[in-house]
Design a protein around this nucleic acid. Sequence first.
DNA 1: TTATAATGTCATGTT
DNA 2: CTAACATGACATTAT
Length: 810
Amino acid sequence: MLYLKKYFTEGLIQFTILLSLIGVRVDVDTYLSSQFPPLREIILGPSSAYTQTQFHNLRNTLDGYGIHPKSVDLDYFFASRRLLNQVRSLDHLRVPTTELSTWLVHRDPESVVSAAGQSSSSIALDNGASLEDVSNPEGSAMRGGGTSVDGLPESGYSLNGEETLGAVAPQDSQDQGSHLEDCNDDLTKEDIDLIDILWRQDIDLGAGREVFDYSSRQKENEVDKCPLPEQNEQGVDGQESWRNGVNRQGRQSHTQVDGETGESIPEELADLGAQTSLSLQECLRLLEATFPFGDESEFPDTVSPELREPSSEEPSTSQGLLSPLLPQSEPSLDLEQQWQDIMAIMELQDMEVNSTADSSFLSDSTGGTNNSGMEPNPLVTFGLPSPTPINQDVSLHQATLPSCSQEFSTLFGPELDPRTSMETSGSQQPTLHSNSSNINSTFGGTNLTGLFLPPLLNGTSNSTCTPMLQDPLNSLLEEAMLDEISLLDLAMEEGFSQAQAFQLEDELDSDSGLSLDSSQSPASPSSSETSCSSSSSSSSSSTCATFSEEGAVGYSTDSEPVLEQEEGAVGGYQPEYSKFCRMSYQDLSQFQHLPQLENISHNHTYNLPLSSSSDNEHLKPLNTGKKPGRDKQQQAKVQPSQDFLEKQSSRDERRARAMKIPFSNDKIINLPVEEFNELLAKHHLSEAQLALIRDIRRRGKNKMAAQNCRKRKLDTILNLEQDVEELRRNKTRLLKEKMEYVRSIRQMKQKVHSLYHEVLNQLRDEDGRPYPASEYSLQYGPDGSVLVMPRSLVPEQTRKADKKQKDKKK
DNA sequence: TTATAATGTCATGTT
DNA sequence: CTAACATGACATTAT
């Protein structure tokens, strides 16, 4: 041990780690005779799953829960579940730094996107929000409900159009639940058909998608960078993760780790922030930026660097967004109060964002007269308690479209039609104002629960015509939206983010490579033993390296107490043994000099109490002479692990020697039963000897079995961990896909809705007058034609069906 | 000295 | 039935 200590000082370890980090492979193992597989891990990077902490955590909790594949029963099932939970919890423990970097990475692109989106586009904002939900579920949770409905910020619509007709925005925003319900509107087949039939305009369906892809790509790219630091940390961490012989190095390296854990504190803090929500982060930055009293003291400096970093890229977003609100909150309030205020603000904001999409069609009855004020900073309304701001926006899109492109640009924002994005703010308003009254009335009577269905469901006899057609798509959409919500909830529950999953991927990779080692490492003692024993069994004179090493071990000092214990144990086991042993120890030195007695070579154990130091002197030459090839290796590994090795062969070896068993324990244990019996037959052994031999064989086999069992258990745990991570990756991927689909569906709904209104607004009756949307709706005819029908003709059952669906959603 | 991880041992069940 | 193996529970050892 001292030998190793001497060379593996902290500095050396650091150096090796450094080398490993830069890709230089330092194979110390070869120099250490592969006695310490951990060294390889230390240098080349450990298996995170194999760290001591983890293992023992698992093991402690797993005791009694075998994971043996054969026992596939309830116990196994529950044990597996426990394991999974354990693994997950472990995962969480590991994640902090990961999560932090993930957040940072994710936040920047997202903020950029959302910043762009918030200014004028609903969909971009939606993307941002969705991504945020995916990757930062806690954040969503913090915002209450967290289910992000499409945000159409500047328009300030409320989704609750039907229920809250005429109700002002604040009320809407308070009703988060209704948002959820209302967002589950259905894209019916009629709607699709409507698109096919009526919509021939060139709308870039992929625009929104592109935005999404962009952000996601950004995120992935960024995330790719994340694993590095974490892996590094693992690499350091892994040094702790070894056992016994290597623990010394582990400790030394631990000092390093401590150095890093110092950093981990801020990371955890930052992670805390990241988990709360992105909005929270913005709040943080806001606090720092807005309040001159410099609450940075309240927020550890360790946090602020990470937090500030992204802030530089999005000052316009958060500050510009919220700063107008902040003055309202009193700076004199204590920090807690300020936080509460800000959280409240953020909630409002989120709700607004969520409600924006559908609210665009909701235009309130108060009429959008103040739009002009909104445009410069539409988001100002978010924080304002007064209902008016949102109402102002109401009629934005209700105007009879002078041109489709204009309306679409208004509705879908820059993503859908980037060309018009610039125009929307300016050109929109006049148009809207002119028609505001009409529009308001129109939408006042319209069921806006759905983005585009409202007309169909609310006002027309459509249901009679093609009620069945709605169902498939309705249910589909419903399902999609609900799933989205549930998935988000799920994600929130797990505290699981996409970026996190990506890192898990990397972790998994590293683990997979290391798991092999891990399986070997614990078995290394046993494997060496078995290999030795097998070889020894073939040649009787050969000595197991393990045993010979013991001989090299100069344990004369501690051997005495051990012997005493041993004797006590033996005595309890078989009383006469103790006497025997004591007597036999006298003869140990003699035994050792008898070459034909294999025991001699292995069991230096004997040197113990009675054997003098000179006896030990004899042993070493004996051993080295037998295994010259291994001498160097032994020299290297024997010294550090002498205790370990001594322990391995002590008891039964000693007993056997004491009983003068004429063959090695290796043979006793590993010979096939026939050969074993032959061996017993060859020698005339006493009952005591036979009993001891049988016990040695039984114990020896059981020892190996136990080692195998533990190894299997560990492998099982590792495999489960891998499975969990794999499942997580899949889940993340599916979640991502789902979000994408939901987003696409949402966009489709918006388009259908706008198309619907466009068509309806362009229609003129015989007198050239437009059909008020409040009184008329488009319906499918039985033959697929589109009819303008008075809403009064819509049968009651349609509404009932609609309500039923909504209840179902609830 | 105590805590904890690693290993050994036993009892029991399974193959 | 025996031998071998597997495994939970406990004991011992090592650090």
